[in-house]
Design a protein around this nucleic acid. Structure first.
Length: 287
DNA sequence: GTGTTTGTTATCAA
DNA sequence: CTTGATAACAAACA
């Protein structure tokens, strides 16, 4: 379940690997993951370079040299794994490539770059997608579908109060609402609530000012700490090198139902269903 | 065959 | 128009 920290980690990795490399071929093994007509999709990619890699919420954005943009959404089980091609030594002998089993049965789209390196878009459940859009289409998508970015300067206390103003939904649903705040998914919503000491089912409009401030601070700190640990691998997430994220070792509530709370050392983590999602919290230290 | 998983969107109600 | 709640969908696996 790649959320903001996982997507950010992948973007940072890929910037070092594929910027300015010419794409010489695209192989599409599952057409349903491409949201354009296949010939158009290929035509707008092959022969171009990736000029820049950015992210909005959980959406990855490749700026292509042909002036189009490639959107990549990993949804639940998507992976973007990069591998060097076989390197030819001066003597013409090829060095062995680390065997990570790429491509595997879930490698649905494969990019090959001019140096022989490859980018594999794997997705076991095939919920993810790739889509080529123009600048105008991109601007429209970004403006209409995404709220505050937690890592940007405009995630201020004043803007956070505005975002929460007169909201009557639960804090869990609010954190998952991409149009309010971009990039938070099920894992980090629960972790942010725990760090804030607030039960995820609480109504936003009944939070005290100090609780809203705790949420604001916890959002930044949880996300930044998760990025430092290169994200959370709960089931399928891996970074661009195919490695797991280490923040799974620092989770306090997600997937911890039935165990003793590590923060207060008294409560037993409960799991409930909220906003249609599995939701974890400590009944003792979250009020 | 059934229940479960989450990111996103559709749909309906107010 | 906005907001909120809920259902539905994608595919795989225990």
């Amino acid at each position: 379940m790649p959320e903001l920290p996982e997507v950010e980690t992948i973007c940072r990795d890929l910037r070092k690997k594929i910027i300015n490399k010419k794409i010489v071929s695209v192989v599409i093994r599952k057409k349903n993951l491409v949201r354009n007509p296949i010939p158009i999709f290929k035509k707008k990619i092959v022969g171009n370079k990736v000029d820049a890699i950015n992210r909005r919420g959980k959406l990855i954005i490749f700026k292509l040299s042909g002036r189009d943009f490639l959107l990549i959404h990993l949804k639940m089980t998507g992976q973007l794994i990069y591998q060097q091609g076989e390197k030819i030594t001066a003597g013409g002998h090829s060095l062995p490539r680390p065997d990570q089993g790429m491509p595997n049965k879930f490698s649905h789209i494969i990019f090959t770059f001019v140096d022989g390196s490859q980018l594999f878009f794997n997705d076991m459940r095939q919920f993810g997608y790739m889509q080529i859009v123009s600048q105008i289409e991109l601007d429209d998508i970004l403006v209409n579908n995404y709220g505050i970015e937690p890592l940007l300067d405009n995630f201020t206390w004043a803007n956070w109060q505005k975002a929460l103003h007169e909201r009557k939904t639960s804090i869990k649903a609010l954190l998952l609402n991409q149009k309010v705040i971009a990039g938070i998914g099920n894992i980090y919503a629960d972790e942010i609530c725990h760090k804030s000491g607030i039960r995820p089912g609480r109504s936003v409009n009944k939070l005290t000012l100090s609780e809203k401030r705790k949420l604001w601070q916890a959002t930044t700190s949880v996300i930044k700490r998760a990025i430092v640990k290169r994200g959370t691998t709960f089931s399928d997430y891996v970074d661009a090198d195919g490695h797991s994220g280490l923040f799974v070792d620092y989770l306090k509530v997600f997937g911890k139902q039935g165990t003793k709370c590590k923060a207060c050392k008294q409560g037993v983590i409960k799991k409930i269903r909220l906003a249609g999602r599995g939701t974890h919290y400590c009944p003792n230290c979250q009020k």
